[in-house]
Amino acid sequence: MLIRIVEHIDLNEAPAYLVSEETGAINLFVGTVRNHSKGKTVLHLDFEAYEPMAVKEMEKLGLQAKVKWPLYEVAIIHAVGHKLPGEPVVVIGVSSAHREASFEACRWLIDELKKTVPIWKKEFYEDNSVWVNAHP
């Protein structure tokens, strides 16, 4: 598995890791910064992680996905730091023999990452900033 927390995401890294002669399908999800949220202009996002735990939780998700679906490999890369609209902040990639498993596993991994991995984002608007999900 390729599990990393990085300052800058290289979009070529996960596909290069996943591609192989035995693989029939590679599915890649890229999450990027949007320039708007709830009707407001977003200037930038700041991400921070509790890195040792975030890596551990991402490894657990990768291992669970490999049990749930017949996957060859899993890549999970998340960025930390100051991110501008359009920049990639998360990459999920999986490889499998056929496309169904790769689509399903990729979707499951990003959904679970958002629930359990200790990474936080703060949205900066023109007039204030807010930690996403912090309050009900």
Binding site: G31, F47, V89, L113, K115, I119, V132, N133
Partner: peptide, 8 residues
């Protein structure tokens, strides 16, 4: 202390 996470 782990507040509500918001990665991705």
């Amino acid at each position: 202390l782990i507040p509500p996470v918001s990665g991705g």
